[in-house]
Nucleic acid binder design. Structure first.
Lengths: 205, 205
DNA sequence: TTTGCATACTAAACACTGTTTAGTATATTT
DNA sequence: AAATATACTAAACAGTGTTTAGTATGCAAA
């Protein structure tokens, strides 16, 4: 049965090949311009072959979507050692902001686009996303328990913090701040950081 | 020259016909499924005819985008009479939330989608959007001047408020809260309102 | 060794999309 | 009546995601 094993390994290798090509092309060209034919050209297979390894285009992008959450969770993990929950929340907030500014395409796929979401609601899996949100809920909970944050329903506060952070970066990424483009990009980016601090200070007890 | 006048009127009528059809189809089917051919079928003209009245698909959707801002500005206008800036801000905040929940497709086009945005950055016009943001900046400014809101850079605070509100509704619209779907939709909607009040109370002086 | 079968792959097609081109009627002007 | 401008469209172009039908290839049983 060694042959069958090798074949299964080969199959996984080709699956991996597709994912790696798709990820690279996606970060290079964006979602829209990364077509099945582009990926097929890149890995030198026919477009139909890709459908032997993935049910549909969005299944590939769901995987890239998950990879993004791994990166984000890694950033969050750097702050688990911070004892003070408010300081930890501050660090997480700025990490979230920086992640979005440094990886706008990943962020788009993870939090803005509709594309890879059918996958999630069908397959009931959303672990990586839940994990990142759980870090937020835990930190907020600790903060409230230690009276470092204003008293309120913990889940609701976490939802408020996430909403604020998401709004800030998604308006930036989707260029809704660009309209008042009297301000140049670096000034605007600095203001995003100031806004983050203002927000966190506001919910501080 | 009466004939020429009539012809110009007719031309505007057909332009209006296209816009009305496109708006109706967009609110019924969404952006993706409202194709040039769908509109052409609906108004019983050929697809090529539409290109005699609009340079490209996104020019039509830019106009729908503008119509959305008229609706939103109308909602905001209902609160200009409120003397107390903090109370006015609260009313505006809840109007924004309700507008998004009642008109998710408009909201998507106005604040999330990339589609009709080339138009804006090219033609330098973004009046409706600027006007809505100006209402926010003015209200925040008054609030800070009267020490009803925490002291900080006025533009930055307005940006923070908008970011929060946008994050809240866009995460809802793009179904990022649906993952923790232990909570049902009505409970979640109530929580959005509570979050809005919590946020506003937090930035209150 | 040869037959049979499953695996891996692809050319071509299907049904869409936004957009352009070239050509046809109709109406107005000369 | 001839020339011109207007309004419109059939058909094509280049692209998309996806499916179908068919072709080689490698392995297992006869």
């Amino acid at each position: 049965m060694a042959i069958k094993d090798r074949k299964e390994r080969d199959k996984l290798d080709r699956r991996k090949l597709i994912i790696e090509s798709a990820t690279r092309l996606f970060l290079e060209l964006g979602y829209e311009k990364t077509s099945i034919r582009t990926i097929a050209d890149d890995i030198e297979y026919s477009p139909a072959t890709i459908y032997l390894y993935f049910k549909e285009k969005d299944e590939i992008f769901y995987i890239i979507h998950e990879q993004g959450f791994v990166l984000l969770n890694n950033e969050f993990a750097k702050h688990v050692h911070i004892e003070n929950p408010f300081e930890r929340l501050t660090a997480i907030g700025h990490s979230y902001l920086n992640f979005a500014l440094d990886n706008p395409d990943y962020y788009d796929l993870m939090f803005i686009m509709r594309a890879p979401l059918q996958e999630i609601s069908c397959l009931e899996k959303w672990d990586a996303g839940d994990s990142a949100f759980q870090v937020l809920v835990d930190t907020v909970s600790e903060g409230i328990d230690q009276r470092l944050l204003k008293e309120a329903d913990k889940f609701m506060v976490a939802l408020t913090v996430w909403s604020y952070a998401h709004g800030l970066v998604s308006l930036y990424i989707r260029e809704r701040f660009q309209s008042m483009k009297k301000v140049d990009d670096q000034v605007l980016k600095n203001m995003l950081g100031q806004s983050m601090d203002f927000f966190l200070k506001s919910i501080q007890h």
